[in-house]
Measured scan of single mutants.
Amino acid sequence: KTSLNPNDLGPLPPGWEERIHLDGRTFYIDHNSKITQWEDPRLQNPAITGP
């Protein structure tokens, strides 16, 4: 199984920011909706992941 390299996905969507949590995990901030999440928003785009 090959793992996706986030660098291959291009930039984050407008308004998003990638940060490192105190425990070392990466999380994502959506400044548009004022939410945070652990999942990379680029992986949730149907145009990238397919049907």
Rank of each mutant, 00 (worst) to 15 (best):
H21I: 04
E39T: 11
Q37F: 05
E17G: 02
D40Q: 00
D23Y: 01
P51A: 15
E18A: 11
G10L: 04
S33L: 08
N45S: 13
G10I: 03
I29G: 03
T26N: 09
P13T: 00
L22H: 15
P46E: 05
P13I: 00
N7T: 13
P13N: 04
T49N: 06
W38C: 08
Q37K: 05
P11I: 06
D30Y: 05
N5T: 08
N32R: 12
T2L: 09
H21C: 14
E39Q: 05
I29W: 06
K34M: 11
I20M: 10
H31L: 12
P6Y: 11
T2I: 14
P46Q: 07
P6E: 14
H21F: 04
N45C: 11
G10T: 10
E39Y: 04
Y28V: 01
T49P: 10
P11D: 13
E17R: 01
R19V: 09
R42P: 04
D8H: 08
S3Y: 12
T2R: 05
I35R: 14
A47M: 08
I35A: 14
W38E: 14
E39R: 08
N7C: 13
D30L: 02
S3W: 00
R19F: 06
S33N: 13
G50K: 15
S33M: 06
L12I: 03
G15A: 05
D8T: 11
N32S: 11
I20T: 15
R19L: 05
G24D: 01
A47T: 12
N45G: 12
E17H: 09
G10D: 07
N7A: 13
N32Q: 09
G50T: 15
G15K: 04
S33I: 04
N5G: 09
S33V: 05
T26E: 04
D23N: 12
L22E: 15
L4Q: 13
K34Q: 14
P51T: 14
T36V: 07
N7H: 10
L43I: 07
L43S: 12
S33H: 15
P46W: 07
T49R: 12
P51R: 05
P6V: 14
L43V: 11
I35W: 06
W16V: 03
H31A: 09
T2Q: 13
Q44L: 10
D23V: 00
L4K: 15
I20P: 07
K34C: 08
L4H: 07
Q44E: 14
L22S: 15
L12G: 00
Q37Y: 06
I29K: 13
N5Q: 07
H31C: 10
Q37V: 05
L12A: 02
S33C: 10
P46L: 15
K1I: 12
L22A: 15
W38N: 12
Q44A: 13
R42N: 02
I35K: 14
N7G: 13
T2G: 06
R42D: 00
E39H: 10
E17M: 01
Q44I: 13
T26Y: 11
H31I: 13
E17Q: 05
N45H: 12
P11A: 14
G50S: 09
P46Y: 06
E18Q: 13
E39K: 08
Q44N: 11
G10H: 03
L12R: 00
F27L: 12
P6K: 15
S33K: 14
D23K: 06
G10A: 11
D40V: 01
I29R: 07
N45F: 02
F27W: 05
E17T: 02
N7D: 14
Y28H: 02
T2C: 09
T49E: 10
G50Y: 08
W38V: 10
I29Q: 09
G15L: 02
S33Y: 05
P13F: 02
G50H: 03
G50I: 03
I35P: 02
Y28T: 02
T36W: 03
S33A: 12
S3V: 05
W38G: 07
Y28F: 05
F27C: 12
D30G: 02
G24T: 00
I29P: 04
D30P: 00
N32C: 06
D23R: 02
L9F: 07
I20L: 13
N32W: 05
G10F: 01
A47H: 15
K34S: 08
D30S: 06
P11E: 12
R25D: 06
E17S: 07
Y28L: 01
Q37C: 08
N45E: 12
P51S: 05
P13H: 00
P13M: 01
P6D: 15
R25I: 01
Q37G: 01
P11K: 08
N5M: 14
I35H: 14
L12C: 01
E18T: 07
D8W: 04
G10N: 15
E39M: 07
F27Q: 14
N7S: 12
H21G: 15
N45P: 11
W38D: 13
G10Q: 06
E18I: 01
Q44R: 12
W16L: 03
P6T: 15
R42V: 01
P46K: 14
H31G: 07
E18V: 06
I35L: 13
I20S: 14
I29H: 01
P13E: 03
D23Q: 07
H31R: 09
G50Q: 05
E18G: 03
N45L: 11
D40S: 03
P11M: 07
G24N: 02
K1N: 12
P51E: 11
L43Q: 10
P6H: 07
L43N: 09
E17F: 01
G24V: 00
P14R: 11
Q44C: 10
L4T: 06
N5W: 03
E18N: 00
P11W: 02
I29A: 06
I35G: 06
P46S: 12
P6G: 14
D8S: 10
D40A: 03
D8Q: 08
Q44K: 15
P13S: 02
W16K: 06
T36M: 08
W38T: 14
I48L: 10
W16D: 05
F27E: 15
L9S: 07
T49M: 11
R25F: 03
L12F: 11
R42M: 01
N7E: 13
I48F: 06
L12D: 01
T36P: 02
N32M: 09
T26W: 02
G15Y: 03
L43Y: 08
P13W: 01
R25A: 06
W38R: 09
K34I: 00
Y28Q: 04
T36E: 10
N5A: 09
N32K: 13
T49F: 09
Q44T: 11
R25L: 02
P13L: 01
Q37A: 04
Y28M: 00
N7M: 13
N45A: 13
G15V: 02
R25V: 03
T2Y: 13
K1W: 00
S3N: 15
D8I: 08
D30E: 07
Q37M: 07
Y28A: 04
W16A: 05
G50L: 15
I20Q: 10
P41M: 05
D23P: 04
W38Y: 12
A47Y: 14
E18S: 13
D8F: 06
P41A: 00
D23A: 01
D40W: 00
Q44W: 07
R42C: 01
P11C: 09
